[in-house]
Design a protein around this nucleic acid. Sequence first.
DNA 1: TTGTACGCGTTATCAG
DNA 2: CTGATAACGCGTACAA
Lengths: 324, 324
Amino acid sequence: MANIREIARLAGVSVSTVSRVLNNHPYVTPDKREAVLKTIRELDYSPNINAVHLSRGKTNMVGVVLPTINHPYFSELLEGIAEEAMKHNIQLVLFQTGYHQEKEFEALEQLRGHLIDGVIFASRAIPFDSILKYKDAGPIVLCEDSDQDEFPAISIKHVAAFNLGLDYLMSKGHERIAICLGRLEGTNSQKRQKAYEEKMKMIGQNVHGDWILGKCLMIQDGKSVVDRFLQMKEKPTAFLVGNDQVAAGIITETIKQGLAVPENVAVLSFDNHPISEIMGITTIDIPTKQLGTYAFHAFIKRSDDSKYAKKVALPFKLIVRNSI
Amino acid sequence: MANIREIARLAGVSVSTVSRVLNNHPYVTPDKREAVLKTIRELDYSPNINAVHLSRGKTNMVGVVLPTINHPYFSELLEGIAEEAMKHNIQLVLFQTGYHQEKEFEALEQLRGHLIDGVIFASRAIPFDSILKYKDAGPIVLCEDSDQDEFPAISIKHVAAFNLGLDYLMSKGHERIAICLGRLEGTNSQKRQKAYEEKMKMIGQNVHGDWILGKCLMIQDGKSVVDRFLQMKEKPTAFLVGNDQVAAGIITETIKQGLAVPENVAVLSFDNHPISEIMGITTIDIPTKQLGTYAFHAFIKRSDDSKYAKKVALPFKLIVRNSI
DNA sequence: TTGTACGCGTTATCAG
DNA sequence: CTGATAACGCGTACAA
């Protein structure tokens, strides 16, 4: 109800002085500052954020679009973004989409309406062209390996990393390889699946349909992988697994079933999360958190000069442990 | 970049006319309207929402505070709220708290800052006194059976319903009753637990610690209930279950184990969700969706006249089917 | 160090 | 039906 003018009047100062106190500006004598703070307390005043945003011309908030935070990859990515955002005093507005397109558009519309200063796409379901229409609305950052030149894009070459994994398994003598992916219908999964099939064809290895396992996201999914493994007539000798969590689940359940890793089945996964170190899982390090850091930096840069558009591909690295 | 003045200039009209077009006001000649729409399209203009909010003095958005939407009770409550909000053309801003207090305060702070017009607490973790401090910030609605008089409170007498359940089971000859609750540490669970213990003491029934089962939220939790049931040395003859989903899980798993419902174990649950009808589960109808409807109405009323503060307790009702 | 006055982008009131 | 113009609440040159 009360506004900055009211405070100024009661404190016997001008609105600018109140504003200065509110924003911790220097050049306010201690007694005036105290007087202002006192009446602010008395009236239980707090600024109208809309007015602040309007006057400042920005909101210091950026939207982050992701399907879910309940997944090790996205939660770590988000952590990277959040850490940087904190340093720059910028609030994050989460758009958990569950891969629903309307939710992604909601973020873009809020950008257009100046409710947020920018949007970082951790992942997306809407086509590139749709995003392109919002190019002038404000900074947009993509976390993907795209070949466009309109938006900054930070990425990890997931498919190349996947191929490295396959190569390493093969170098260790494995030819009967099964793979565990997340959403099979996702673009990334599709590409990996294709890479897998090509590589298997190269070495003349017959690919069994049941060697491509989907819905492998969390640690508990590892159990069902092993269940399915035990049912297979033709058994693979190795698993290439989308993330460490699932690999940990697989290994735990395998051992529970009286089998041994890597003797009965080898496991190679991705991420190099703490759990892989604890369990001695051979993995390919993916700097997911750093991806978030870079994505946020790209937003900051893009906020400054609008011509900025840069593509960054972060490196991955094989970490050899004992699961192969 | 472009603003309403720019549009007005290019379309050869005044800003008021542009505003009228934007807000679908009548009294604009078709040709002027068309001219405005044309330049809006050409400049890819969209209004600055901050300015709109500031000028209107409200945002037409209300915050909904809940621990998670991934739970049948809350998702149905939310549905009730959302349906009404839609009718009144009001946007919902979700605060998924996971019962973290800071998240709840975030909603209240946004209310203070005029970023939202009101807050509906579907459930809360912060103490009442904390909320009281925000009384003047705007309409706040509680979905709970509280004995205060400051805020409108819509509720279902969960404990009374729970007692009804116990009474009904006892009327059917059951004395060895186990209960399945959600978060055991929650206020509601605590109250139910107390009611349960009192009732059991009344009939001189010894209460076994393992007859009070927690973490029963989703259908899959029903399986672990049955697992635990099978391990019990002293077995109950009936389950009073917090929601239909879990009951469905229990019944399904019970049958899978070669036992029969209600012969080997009776089940009574809450909610009267569709699954209970399909599976013939005796349940106590809880008008959760209606709770949401009423909660939203309370917000609307409270928006009009600020003196309004009302307590509503919605009725529950036993629905007899075949699980007892 | 302080205050005045203007701008931010929109809506609403009120003459015409 | 249309157009000035005053709010809305705040930040900030600029002048003092």
